[in-house]
Design a protein around this nucleic acid. Structure first.
Lengths: 197, 197
DNA sequence: GCATCCATGTAACCAGTTACATGATTTG
DNA sequence: CAAATCATGTAACTGGTTACATGGATGC
């Protein structure tokens, strides 16, 4: 389902970036785990470009921001830096390629977030960028997640008890973790509902 | 690094099983997540058999237990059931193939647990079966894990603060989760050290 | 005797990785 | 000018997945 593309579209919502810096930003946003490698990043960018979800913004041709308020000052600054660097140096065919998200890309991002197929990994990435999508999709995302965790909880609780010390510790810790996640989701859901009013 | 093989060797330590039931047991032990599919289970079993870590125990040829006390009564019972079923029915070339772990397999399991390359997924599986390996390896496993989590914590804390509401919630929740995991590990480590005395 | 589960296995695919090849820019 | 870092990309591999093919055993 290409979580990586979701993530790329997400960070490009904050700022226009070239691949190398995009990788760093992805690390920050996704955490040290699930950081992508170049071997998957560049092909993903190429796919997204072919699909029309992102496009290379030439430094000279588009010095404009084209960004409806992102709320991220850091993002704007990074984009500015990227643009400035690209414009002050003359580059051959192997120069930096700064990408920006298109309107189709924005729509695609919301579509991906609304897609009900979300595993653990996907949920985190979706939540990280759900700001861009309509409130009802956001609510649906949180509710789907809550339901999935609740199901997981009942399943682990129905499993017959194990005698092994370490496995028991593991199961207990896991159960508590899921309960904690659900409580957290409930808090998020509440503030989300308040927001909608 | 084939976490799946580690898991297979682990559950075969409890009982001799055929592939189909092994999958079910794996689901129980590993939780609903990271449950393996037949498409990876059977090839993995074949690999392990070629390597001499498991071997097919023919129902007629080996009605003996060959298991040095596992401490798991449920495991023994399951193995007995598997053997009984296989012995009461005559089977063609497509009958059940009941696998058992070999001495090499046991050694391999400890080796895999001792291998310092453990990601999130691998750690859980290792801990689930660490009973079979010497106490110092167990201690090392827990300490490695603690160190890895501590590193992750400092890294996430060093990341500059994000303005976005959802991302902030995500980071905070994640941080607390890691701290909780570390506290849990500390408890495990303490009882482990007491045990060694 | 037909449906349904049990059981094994293969083939095609998938999302990602590491390792490699290439070269431009910056800095000491 | 050499070394480090920035930057892009490809190829081979990996550890899985789903879908498919096959058939025995059970239960109604």
């Amino acid at each position: 389902m290409h979580v990586i593309e979701l993530a790329i579209l997400g960070v490009l919502t904050d700022a226009d970036l070239h691949g190398y810096e995009l990788k760093k930003r992805l690390r920050e946003v996704l955490g040290p785990l699930s950081s992508v490698s170049f071997g998957s990043l560049y092909p993903a960018l190429a796919r997204l470009e072919r699909a029309g979800y992102v496009k290379a913004v030439e430094a000279e041709t588009s010095p404009v921001t084209t960004m409806p308020m992102t709320g991220s000052l850091a993002g704007e600054a990074a984009a500015f830096r990227a643009r400035r660097r690209a414009s002050t140096t003359t580059r051959g065919p192997r120069g930096k390629k700064v990408y920006g998200i298109t309107e189709d890309g924005r729509a695609r991002l919301c579509e991906l977030i609304a897609d009900p197929a979300d595993d653990d990994r996907a949920f985190n990435v979706k939540l990280a960028f759900c700001r861009v999508c309509p409130p009802e999709d956001r609510l649906a995302l949180l509710q789907r997640r809550r339901r999935a965790l609740a199901d997981r909880l009942t399943e682990t609780k129905s499993t017959r008890k194990v005698a092994d010390r370490y496995r028991r510790a593991l199961v207990e810790h896991d159960t508590e973790g899921i309960e904690r996640d659900i409580a957290w989701l409930d808090r998020l859901l509440e503030t989300e509902r308040e927001e909608i009013q």
